[in-house]
Design a protein around this nucleic acid. Structure first.
Length: 557
RNA sequence: AGGGGUGUCGCCAAGCGGUAAGGCACAAGAUUUUGAUUCUUGCAUGCGUAGGUUCAAAUCCUGCCACCCCUGCCA
């Protein structure tokens, strides 16, 4: 058999199982509870499950782990399918555990009672909690623990039939109240809960707990490797116990855990995102400052860039916190290859070309780094706008943009020379008077003039106003690990960067008028931007995805 | 009477007994009509720590230390 070269510890484990015959194929699953939007952390888990199966010629199911109707909502399942599609993953099928497995899981629970491995407990939630013991002391056995199994079975059936009030009784696995692993101290595996289920309605008034349902869902589905994050490590003994007692078939699924993704200055917890949405501190779940899938998509991040980043972060079991610059790198890297170049002046300074009249066509490369990207037309005329920061009255060292009496190349057009700075009454520069140098036009320059700087511009007869939204990180720089800061008692509000969303107006070349929502551009020398969905017929809105790298250190004035 | 994990460069991460890959970040230089991209170059006598085994140890053994996770009728 063709040997697959492992690229991480999970694949090494899979190879071992395949070679020893413990497993025959690689079938995985991604099992969200439909209760919130996915974020970049989920993408790691999604990527690992999908990519691993693909590598071994297997496949992956998308399974709604909907065992708790009080937290779940059907709307999410559809958003998950579209998120997966955006990421480029196609699940074998979409399965609702509630529909597909609840009957079978119930039946297996009855069998577990019959084999003497589960019992109905009438203690209150508080009593169960108290009798569980502590990390260093053993728990106490329930007085109902050794009731006859026939009695437990009858009561379990009565639970299902609705004869018990919510919370009055539970089904517990009979394992070991003195087990060093708290999860093994007779865990609750079924509870009574009368809440309408978004999928199966009121068919059930009892619901299996995660620890009982999950291994059985995996097994019933034919999943062979259940890849999850390390918070489930302590649950693995229970996962295996359930399979051993209830499944008893060859090739049971194997759970393998990996470390979660953490990013510096990023808060991903559903609770916090929700708080920010509810308190209107952000635009919504798809706020471009959020690293939710919908947020990143709106921000202009590409699925490819995100996946490249995820892959670069590796798959291990060690705790880590990765700087945002690593994500930035992969986003820029992908955008560089696909974003169309355009000229947009974010902070305009008017320039009059005194020795030029009329207007002429210029040509701008759509992407010098991509073959066959083509060009688009712009214009050069006697009135143009350049970036304020591209002219200086008191140029710092190594400043190679425009200065009084100096020259600079206009991207795609001519070299101009600044002859006069016209001041306004308020002491600021009103406009510049420049002359263009004939015979220096881009592509047909035979002047021999050397010019060290090139700046972008728009022509007055070929531009329009657009709205630009720029974003700063939601979390202040000093809170590298916001989870920890929260644990240390810092308030969420105190960690937020003030005014992290800024709106401004810019002048864009007319070429951009036809752009559609989500279209991605590089505004030459500035950064990557995309069209926001708030764009209307009257006004285009661009989100700044990320700046270009800038190694020129402009000294502070 | 606790248990389960993890420690290799500022941040990730390879390494699986034969003498420390790679990426990010950072720094210097080259090319450039984007101060972008691209390209060079530099960046751990050192692998949490102390011992031990061995011709040879990040890799094996022993003891310490640090950090993370676990006491929902959540997933």
């Amino acid at each position: 058999m063709f040997k697959i070269e492992p690229s991480n510890f999970i694949e090494e484990e899979i190879n071992k199982d395949l070679e020893s015959g413990k497993a025959k194929e690689v079938i995985t699953r991604f099992p969200p509870e439909p209760s919130g939007y996915w974020h970049i952390g989920h993408i790691k888990a999604i990527t690992i499950n999908f990519e691993t199966a693909k590598k071994y010629n297997g496949f992956t199911y998308l399974r709604m782990d909907d065992t708790n109707p009080s937290k779940e909502d059907g709307d999410f399942a559809n958003s998950y399918m579209s998120d997966l599609k955006w990421l480029g993953y196609q699940p074998k099928s979409l399965i609702y555990a509630s529909e597909a497995y609840f009957d079978k899981i119930y039946q297996l629970a009855e069998e577990l009672i019959q084999s003497g491995n589960a019992y109905v407990d009438e203690q209150s939630a508080e009593e169960i909690s108290q009798s569980r013991g502590s990390l260093t002391t053993a728990g106490k056995e329930s007085p109902y623990r050794n009731r006859p199994k026939e009695e437990s079975l009858q009561m379990f059936r009565d639970m299902k039939a609705g004869k018990f009030a919510d919370g009055s009784v539970v089904l517990r696995a009979k394992i070991d109240m003195a087990h060093p692993n708290m999860n093994m101290r007779d865990p609750v595996i079924y509870r009574v809960l009368r809440t309408h289920h978004y999928r199966v309605g009121d068919k059930w008034c009892i619901y299996p707990m995660y620890d009982f349902a999950h291994p059985l869902e995996d097994a019933l589905e034919g999943v062979t490797f259940s890849l999850c994050d390390m918070s489930f490590e302590d649950h693995r003994p229970l996962y295996n116990w359930v399979l051993e007692k209830c499944w008893k078939k060859p090739y049971p699924p194997r759970q393998i855990e990996f470390a979660r993704l953490n990013l510096e200055n990023v808060l991903l917890g559903k609770r916090f995102l929700k708080q920010l949405v509810n308190e209107k501190k952000v635009i919504g779940w798809d706020d471009p400052r959020f690293l939710t899938i919908v947020g990143m998509k709106r921000r202009g991040y590409t699925a490819q860039g995100i996946k490249d980043f995820i892959k670069s972060a590796g798959v291990t079991k060690s705790d880590s916190i990765i700087p945002l610059s690593a994500l930035d790198f992969h986003i820029r890297n992908d955008l560089n290859m696909i974003a169309t170049r355009a000229m947009v002046v974010l902070d305009p300074l008017k320039v009059i070309i005194t020795n030029y009249t009329g207007s002429e066509e210029i040509e701008i490369e759509n992407n010098p780094n991509a073959e066959n990207a083509g060009t688009h037309k712009g214009t050069f005329s006697n009135i143009i706008y350049i970036e304020k920061e591209d002219f200086s009255l008191n140029p710092p060292p190594k400043y190679n943009r425009l200065v009084e009496g100096g020259i600079v190349r206009l991207k795609g057009a001519y070299i101009i020379k600044c002859n006069k700075v016209v001041m306004a009454e308020n002491g600021e520069i009103d406009h510049l008077e420049c002359e263009y140098l004939p015979n220096t036009k881009s592509g047909q320059d035979n002047s021999g003039i050397k010019c060290k700087g090139t700046i972008h511009f728009v022509s007055a007869d070929n531009c329009f106003e657009v709205t630009i939204r720029e974003f700063e990180n939601l979390i202040k720089d000093e809170y590298i690990d916001p989870i920890k800061a929260l644990a240390d008692g810092v308030e969420l509000d105190d960690m937020l960067t003030p005014n992290s969303l800024k709106e401004s107006t810019a002048l864009a070349e007319n070429f951009l008028k036809t752009a559609k929502v989500e279209d991605k551009f590089q505004f030459i020398r500035k950064g990557y931007y995309c069209v926001d969905k708030d764009t209307t017929n009257e006004r285009m809105v661009f989100n700044k995805t990320i700046s270009l790298k800038d190694s020129f250190k402009m000294p502070k004035l």
